[in-house]
């Protein structure tokens, strides 16, 4: 029988026994839900360990509530999962921190990170929390690129860096906030010294 003469049959694709991909459900802190493939999740060491530990079946994924990611909002999480889906199956770089790495930003990543700096900041925090090494590399590279051709004074403005005096003041304020009693004791000690006392006790 030729191909042309063969009867046309509607095939129910769902009936074909193929290995079913598992999509996990995650929920951001502003209650937005995302479905992410198992392979994409492997880019995140944190999520990968989490789903392994949970040992969900396909039914569990559908029936149980979505896995909550409390620290990340929906807008940021969307970017993270878009990135993971695009780079799923890629090797995860080993980060030993010992040698300077040459990081190139691929076109997809450049478009994905064409965002305001507030969102970029959140993206880095999210990549760090979820331990996605390559996303950290490219997002930090994007931040590093802001330094190109800048003098120290320009860098200070670009990165909103405090001066030495501001750092000192912040340190003092943090100490005081941490232990107000210690500050009181110190003031009392100073006062006694001014009054000519030799011993605090």
């Amino acid at each position: 029988m030729s191909v042309e003469n063969a009867p046309v049959v509607d095939v129910d694709e769902a009936a074909i026994p193929v290995e079913k991909k598992m999509y996990y459900r995650f929920e951001s802190n502003d209650k937005k839900e995302f479905r992410v493939s198992e392979l994409a999740i492997q880019q995140s060491e944190t999520l990968n360990r989490l789903v392994e530990a949970m040992g969900y079946t396909s039914e569990d994924v559908e029936n149980k509530p979505a896995i909550a990611i409390e620290n990340i909002d929906g807008k940021t999480l969307k970017l993270v999962f878009q990135w993971c889906e695009h780079h799923k199956g890629e090797a995860i770089p080993v980060d030993d921190g010992s040698v300077p790495k040459i990081v190139e930003i691929p076109e997809f990543d450049a478009k994905l990170m064409d965002i305001d700096n507030g969102l970029l900041f959140k993206l880095i925090w999210a990549a760090d929390y979820l331990n996605i090494v390559q996303l950290l590399n490219v997002s930090c590279k994007k931040v590093a690129n802001m330094a190109q051709g800048k003098t120290p004074a320009q860098l200070r403005r670009v990165y909103l860096l405090p001066s030495d005096e501001e750092d000192e003041a912040a340190k003092r304020a943090a100490q005081e906030a941490q232990d107000p009693r210690a500050r009181e004791v110190e003031e009392e000690f100073e006062e006694r010294k001014r009054q000519g006392g030799n011993s605090f006790f």
């Binding site: 970029l120 900041f121 880095i124 925090w125 760090d128 930090c140 931040v143 990165y159 909103l160």
Partner: peptide, 13 residues
């Protein structure tokens, strides 16, 4: 003009 609060990132980043 970029503005990025670098020191609010974690030290390793």
């Amino acid at each position: 003009i970029y503005r990025f609060p670098l020191f609010r990132l974690q030290q390793n980043n």
